[in-house]
Design a protein around this nucleic acid. Structure first.
Length: 862
RNA sequence: GCCCGGGUGGCGGAAUGGUAGACGCUGUGGACUUAAAAUCCAUUGUCCUUAGGACGUGAGGGUUCGAGUCCCUCCCCGGGCACCA
């Protein structure tokens, strides 16, 4: 049944069909695994209080078009939606107003769902997920326990942003221009206790896996750079007068003869030992200085090299040279060994430093084609490949050969070895926040831990090989897991979300929740406020940190496959059938973190046997940002934000969908233009008028007769173009083609019912409401989305004639319609007799005649 | 600084090395109307007075019968990285 308006009244048509689809579960994903599957996923949104932004429906519309298209092509489509709902804003709002974040979150989710449903997406809402739902985060916690068991979690002091005035740890986004966003207070890097995940253990696999995924090159490159693998060697330098070595990492062991001094990071532990007494003061002052340097200082003042001398020396293992050990903050303690051998002749930074402090520079490489006649001198620093000089036995070798020979030599002498280093750091997984998944760990004493671990129990089986320890003041505590069967571990209900003031989570103040009795065999827990039942219960303190927002989004694509399963994260059957998303669309801003973390978890889950695929996202596409009408980024403060609700009120959801796709290529960054939507509205109204008469019934122009030949041809061209453009995600040009079709059909005196209905099918993924409405007025009882996608007939697309352009010297001078069977000689003769062409070849000698079949004739004349 | 992506009418954009500017917006003229809206028709890169022609895809070179498209140099815009040895 259709609605009964005679005009194109989207305000009646659209809600009607949205309700109908929802009620008849039109877009319910089937459980039939005999049908080929298509899983298409959007990066799920954070349901902010501001509501949907015009950028959200861009990606969602694109996936919706693909989803509807695939459904029409016989696939069992999974196109879900959910909420990444833990996170800072709800917590900040709670601190200000006392409203529980869960309340804020559910209100925002309601609003987001309402707004998304107004756009008419083909989403199976029975599969909606929410990361803050205990039935969801139970499994987030479960996965954490798998990481724990595999020894991939540990506790360590890690630098985080700390604000002394707010007495709180801040996230990057809470810091604006080096000051806290709230109150504009100074912030500093401070080492605080953190739960960390060993993503670095997967560095090589995360790198290798990129070979197998169909992702934008730029994103692969970014991940590659982030992982930052570099191969080189570790070399031991004997410290002169000490029994210790200073080990450095270098990618250029070939330049060993050119090492003229050493540099260690200010935080390097060896300094306590090797700084000579007369240098102690200066070194200490320098260490203090670099501590207070924020990242901002480090980058902005970057090029100015600073450093101090330690007073000690190293022996270069290759030539016995005695070289000084310096301290400088251009060497990072977190990378490699925190120390380098400095080769100023062949490294830009070392060169600058050597210039600054007048240290010797020894050239050991020259350009391959360097002339020995004086003027072909190699300009220093010279950082590329070449031929070795001043390098003892290695002189004359290529840098490449020299590299492997020196490494072999060092390995033989046991003073060095080939190694690999990564830029990737372990992942700080804890947040000192309330509104996140509690980390399901309990901290107990060493004695209790060992007793627990020694038993033959479920708890003991869930432990890692090496205990996870945490230093708490003078005491070292050991981590026990909350067993999966006791999950979810929910947040305690409270009305205080204020930071603890100590840099710990607000949860440290929830003593009832925090302090527990832990049963060392069964893993059960009881609040410590009750009396200890018996000796099998041990004293425990819950981990008070919560998980970062990334946690919930690391595996949500798996949950959609089987969202109500309370036994497993996803059933084996569902996982085997759905595998992973066939297409994943989301912003390029997640190119590194989300996509890297999710890949890491997926690889761990693969190792656990919980998923069968090696990579979570085989095909990835980034939609571009939609800018404000002024060409700048949409923001509240600029006041150029466009709300989808307003557009739908004025022009309808179909117009919004079409216009967002018509704006330009999906991947491009493009400005919004409110007047541009007029063209789309006209297009929709024109469709309505062509298809629906003034009485609201199918237009009398549409007749159940054989189609006119010229209409058949444009129809098949359109089927082909739209089909291929959807497959290639070129949705803007697909819409152009549909407009061309309508412009043509409008001039035709009649249209066959068949043509009209096929066009509606092509339109349906883009503008589903109007298509469904007109479809039903044709008397169709079933949804248009259930109708098989039309096929084009290549035979119809073949013409008897073709248009050939005539050029003289590459310039267009004429054209002609010719038979497709015309010979080269005939067409060239035709060209030469063309009036336009004739004028330009008359007094000239023809040098060359080119015919590109079906396209062009070019006469070259002098 | 390094690594990417991009630069086409007044605007958004379209063009497997072969008709540059599809499609849409805007503007202009016209039809319908008492009038307006809506709709429809024509026109809309620049220059030359027109027929017709010249020029034209950030700038300059090059390859080619032919370049928006390929190569080199440079300029501008956007994104990423930021002393990673």
């Amino acid at each position: 049944m259709a609605v009964n308006c005679t005009d194109y009244d989207f305000s009646i048509i659209e809600p009607y069909w949205q309700k109908k689809w929802l009620e008849s579960k039109t877009f319910q994903t089937l459980h039939d695994t005999s049908i080929p599957k298509y899983y298409i996923l959007d990066m799920f949104p954070y349901p902010s209080g501001a509501g949907l932004h015009i950028g959200h429906p861009e990606g969602y519309t694109a996936t919706d078009i693909l989803a509807r298209f695939k459904k029409a092509n016989g696939f069992n489509v999974l196109h879900p939606m959910g909420w990444d709902a833990f996170g800072l804003p709800a917590e900040q709002y709670a601190i200000k107003t006392g409203t529980h974040p869960a309340e804020t979150t559910s209100k925002n989710v309601e609003n987001f769902r309402r707004q998304i449903q107004r756009i008419g997406f083909a989403i199976d809402w029975d599969r909606e997920i929410n990361t803050t739902d205990p039935n969801y985060f139970k499994w987030t916690q479960f996965i954490f326990l798998e990481l724990f068991k595999k020894g991939l979690a540990y506790v360590d002091e890690k630098p985080v942003w700390w604000c002394q005035n707010l007495k709180a740890v801040l996230a990057n986004e809470e810091i604006v221009n080096g000051l806290s966003e709230v109150g504009k207070h100074p912030v500093e890097r401070k080492n605080l206790r953190q739960v960390v995940l060993k993503i670095t253990k997967y560095a090589d696999r995360l790198l290798d896996g990129l070979k197998d995924v169909d992702w934008p090159d730029s994103t692969k490159r970014m991940q590659k750079a982030w992982i930052g693998k570099s191969t080189g060697a570790e070399v031991c330098f004997q410290l002169d007068g000490f029994n210790d070595n200073l080990t450095v990492f270098t990618t250029r062991p070939d330049t060993l003869y050119g090492a003229t001094y050493m540099v260690v990071a200010p935080e390097h532990p060896i300094l306590d030992k090797i700084v000579t007494s007369e240098n102690k003061e200066t070194v200490a002052a320098y260490q203090e200085l670099s501590k207070t340097k924020s990242d901002l200082d480090r980058t902005e003042l970057a090029k100015e090299k600073t450093g101090v001398f330690s007073g000690s020396f190293c022996i270069n293992p290759i030539n016995g040279a005695k070289i000084p050990v310096w301290i400088a903050d251009y060497v990072l303690v977190t990378y490699g060994t925190g120390a380098i051998m400095s080769v100023p002749a062949h490294d830009e930074r070392d060169f600058e430093f050597a210039k600054e402090f007048n240290l010797p520079i020894i050239q050991v490489i020259e350009k391959n084609n360097a002339s020995h006649n004086g003027d072909g001198k190699t300009k220093l620093p010279f950082c590329s490949e070449g031929r070795m000089i001043h390098s003892g036995d290695y002189t004359g070798l290529s840098t490449k050969d020299c590299k492997s020979k020196i490494i072999a030599h060092l390995e033989r002498k046991r003073i060095g070895k080939a190694t690999v280093n990564f830029k990737l750091r372990d992942w700080i997984f804890s947040r000192q926040r309330y509104w996140g998944e509690p980390i399901p760990l309990v901290w107990v004493s060493k004695e209790d831990y060992h007793e627990t671990a020694a038993a033959n129990s479920d708890v003991a089986k869930a432990l890692p090989l090496e205990p996870i320890k945490s230093k708490e003041g003078s005491e070292t505590l050991y981590a026990l897991p909350i067993l999966p069967k006791f999950l979810p571990l929910k947040l305690p209900v409270t009305d205080s979300y204020q930071p603890s003031g100590t840099g710990e989570s607000p949860l440290v103040n929830q003593s009832d929740w925090l302090n527990i009795w832990f049963h060392k065999i069964t893993g059960e827990t009881l609040p410590r406020s009750i009396e200890k039942p018996n000796s099998e219960w041990i004293e425990g303190v819950r981990e008070s940190n919560t998980m970062p927002q990334w946690a919930g989004s690391c595996w949500y694509y798996l949950r959609y496959m089987d969202p109500h399963n309370d036994q497993e994260i996803v059933s084996k059957e569902a996982e085997k059938y759905w595998q992973n998303p066939d297409l994943y669309i989301g912003g390029a801003e997640h190119a590194v973190l989300h996509l890297l973390y999710a890949r890491f978890w997926h690889q761990v889950l693969f190792d656990c046997g919980l998923v069968s695929t090696k990579e979570p996202f085989t095909k990835l596409f980034h939609q571009g940002i939609i800018l404000g009408e002024d060409g700048s980024k949409m923001s509240k403060s600029v006041g150029n934000v466009v709300s989808p609700d307003d557009i739908i009120d004025e022009s309808g959801a179909d117009a919004l969908r079409l216009y967002e796709m018509f704006l330009g290529p999906l991947e491009a960054m493009k400005p919004w233009n409110t007047s541009g939507i007029e063209g789309i509205s006209r297009f929709l109204k024109r469709i309505w008028r062509e298809f629906i008469g003034e009485d609201g019934k199918i237009n009398s122009k549409i007749v159940p007769e054989r189609e006119l030949e010229e209409n058949i041809k444009i129809l098949h061209t359109t089927i082909q173009k739209v089909t291929e453009d959807i497959e290639g995600i070129r949705l803007n040009t697909a819409i152009s083609q549909m407009m061309i079709f309508m412009n043509h059909i409008q001039k035709s005196r009649s249209i066959s019912t068949e043509t009209a209905k096929v066009f509606l099918q092509l339109l349906a993924p883009f503008a589903p409401h109007i298509a469904e409405e007109i479809w039903s007025r044709f008397g169709e009882k079933q949804s248009i989305t259930l109708k098989a996608w039309p096929k084009f007939d290549p035979k119809i697309l073949l013409s008897k004639e073709m248009k050939i352009m005539f050029q003289v010297n590459g310039k267009l001078r004429g054209e002609a319609n010719v038979s497709i069977h015309i010979s080269k000689e005939e067409v060239i003769e035709l060209a030469k007799s063309n009036i336009g062409v004739l004028k330009f070849i008359e007094d000239k000698r023809i040098v060359k005649e080119i015919y590109v079949p079906g396209k062009i004739v070019n006469i070259v004349a002098k």
